[in-house]
Each structure stands twice: as structure tokens, then as C-alpha cells.
Nucleic acid binder design. Structure first.
Lengths: 187, 187
DNA sequence: ACCTGAACACCGTTCAAGT
DNA sequence: ACCTGAACACCGTTCAAGT
């Protein structure tokens, strides 16, 4: 009953992440995963109750490792840029990473915490609670939608995509600044 | 070799759409579809070369029927609001509709045409070619990202979601107006 | 605690052969 | 033109039994 990465459960999870990167989400099969671990397929069910639960754990791990290593600097817009950028990079770092996120049923602790951190950021910048949620939701939906589409069409990684991503994000940041932060709002 | 909806191919497609709505994307199985058509599983392959191709056709049909029946009215922002709204409603109208779109490999004729119509709309409003693409991309990524997340968490349909969707869209429309349309831009 | 062996109820796909 | 029959190579999951 250890909490850290040395349990057998964590080895199964790590193997699943590796297998995802090698063969992709469609070929990520419990039987293939078992073979890679040198084990019978049924043995996996001692560690995860279902394939769905395993995939949820993989997604959660990607969210965790996606959180920026250094806390973001600058004003709220610059921080949002950095966080949005690392969300996109985190998903792109794994094969079918964005699509995997899209299949999740439940948000997961790490995702909820990340969401709350963004809401707090906009709150401190002067947004009302409702406005902060709208702003964060919009950024996150955009990042997810962009990255899913980006990863679906393979294509070269290229800085062309980076520019397109950044340009769209600027539109949203501009809208947040102009319509959500405390200025002259009619009630 | 007819083009219209009376071919056997079209019947298979219609049955697939109905089955999707009844059982969802994960349970949409070639064998279940064959059973519903009163046919052996292998018979489907006379009409579609693979399950992937069938799902692409289902997605394309949803895109087609999603195009607004009445051509949108009003200025560019109002037209964009209407089109974004019908894209979302079109996906919500079918079980797992948004997730199905996200799994598409190739855009398809109807989607490309819809994209082009939006680009033209922004061009007429004064955007450069690049700016028009950025604006349309941002709206589409937002709509897809929002709807995927909305449909993944079941929840009541509710107008709460409608308001959240509209509020985020306004941020983007504001950004387009302020940063992409011809005004005082530095070169 | 972790795994084996063996089974169950499914998949997508192919292809000769029928009508 | 459309479908059957039958097979092939897979799936996710369960569970008694072993160590």
C-alpha cells in the first residue's frame, strides 16, 4: 500500500504510457500491455478494475506531468499564455494525447486543481467569479479543440502551427481583458 | 450507381446513424449494425470498405444536416454566432456526435466547404486571408472543444451551458473585431 | 500480493460460393 | 448487385486455482 512510483501498479501505468507512445490509442490493448509486462491478460485486473480506469490514470499522469515545472511569471495574460502552451505541449508529447483527454469521463484531481488555479489567477486580475470561469473555460476549450485537431491531422510539427495557436489565443486573451476584467461594465 | 438516398448504401448509412443515437459510439459495432439490417456482418463490406469509412460517412452526414437551413442574417458577428450555434446543436443532436467528429481523420467535403464559407465571411468583413483563417480556426476549435467536453459530462442540457457557450464565443468575436478586421494595424 | 490457465462473449475483416 | 457461411486473428473481462 505504498503511495509512490515503486508499486507494481505504477509499473503497469508506466508500461501503458510507453505502449501508448509506441502504438497509439487504438492499438493500446490490454492483451498487448500484458504481453509487454510478461504477464497474462487477466493479471492486469489486480491493479486496475477496467481498461477505462487504466486510461483515466494515463490521462491523469499526462495532466500532472504537463503542469509547468517553473511557476509562470508575468501578468495574468502572460501566465495564461504559458499555461495554455504547456497544456498543448503536454498533450502533443504523447501519441493521441489530445484524443485520450477527450475520451475522459471524469476530470480527475490534477485537472480540477489546474482549473482552479486558472480561475484564481483571473480572480486576482479583477474578474468576478462567473467571469473567471467563463474566461478559463474558453481558454481550455480552445486549447483542447485546437490540439485535438492538430494531432488528428498528422503533419509536420512546424512553427506554423505554433503561430496559429498563439494567434487564436491572443484573440481570447484580448476578449478577456476587454469584457471580463473589472472596468466599466454595465450591470 | 444512383446518387440519392434510395441506394442500399444510403440505407446502411441511415441505419448506422440510428444505431449511433440508440447505443452510442462505443457500442456501434459492425456486427450490431448488420443484425439491425438483417444481414451477415461481412455483407457490410460491399457498401463501405471499412468501419472507419462508415464512421467518416456518418460524421459527414451530421456536418451536412448541421448546415443552417436558412442562410444566416445580420453582420459578420451575428452570422458567426448563428453558424457556431448550429454547429454545436448539430453535434449535440447525435449521441457522441462531438467525439465522433474528433476521431475523424480527413475533413470531408462538407466540412471543407463550411470552413471556406466562414473564411469568405470574414474576408468580406475586412480581414486579410491569414487573419480570416486564424479567426475561423479559433471559433471552430472553441466550438469543438466546448461541445466535446459538454457532451462527455452528461448533465442536463440546460440553458446554463448555452449561456456559457455564448459568453465564450463573445470573447472570441470581440478579439476578432479588435485584432483581425481592418482598422489601424501596424504592418 | 501477484499471477496462471482457461474460459466467455464478443470484435473487424476476408472470401469463396450462392441467388 | 447483394448476400451467406464460415473462418481468421483478435478483443475485454472473469474467476478458480496456484505460489
Amino acid at each position: 500500500m505504498r503511495w509512490n512510483g515503486s508499486s507494481r501498479r505504477a509499473e503497469v501505468l508506466q508500461a501503458a504510457v510507453d505502449l501508448l507512445d509506441e502504438v497509439g490509442l487504438d492499438a493500446l490493448t490490454t492483451r498487448r500491455l500484458a504481453a509487454r509486462l510478461g504477464v497474462q491478460p487477466g493479471a492486469l485486473y489486480r491493479h486496475y478494475p477496467s481498461k477505462r480506469a487504466l486510461l483515466d490514470a494515463v490521462a491523469e499522469r499526462i495532466v500532472v506531468e504537463t503542469a509547468p515545472d517553473t511557476p509562470p511569471e508575468g501578468d495574468w495574460a502572460e501566465q495564461l499564455r504559458q499555461i495554455a502552451g504547456s497544456m498543448r505541449r503536454g498533450m502533443l508529447a504523447h501519441r493521441d494525447g489530445a484524443r485520450l483527454m477527450a475520451t475522459l469521463t471524469v476530470p480527475g484531481d490534477a485537472a480540477v486543481a489546474a482549473f482552479q488555479r486558472l480561475v484564481d489567477l483571473l480572480r486576482r486580475a479583477g474578474a468576478t467569479p462567473d467571469a473567471a470561469v467563463v474566461g478559463v473555460d474558453t481558454v481550455i476549450c480552445y486549447v483542447n479543440g485546437f490540439t485535438i485537431e492538430e494531432q488528428a491531422r498528422g503533419g509536420a510539427p512546424g512553427e506554423r502551427r505554433d503561430q496559429g495557436f498563439a494567434a487564436g489565443l491572443e484573440l481570447i486573451l484580448h476578449g478577456i481583458a476587454a469584457r471580463l476584467l473589472a472596468k466599466a461594465n454595465d450591470p
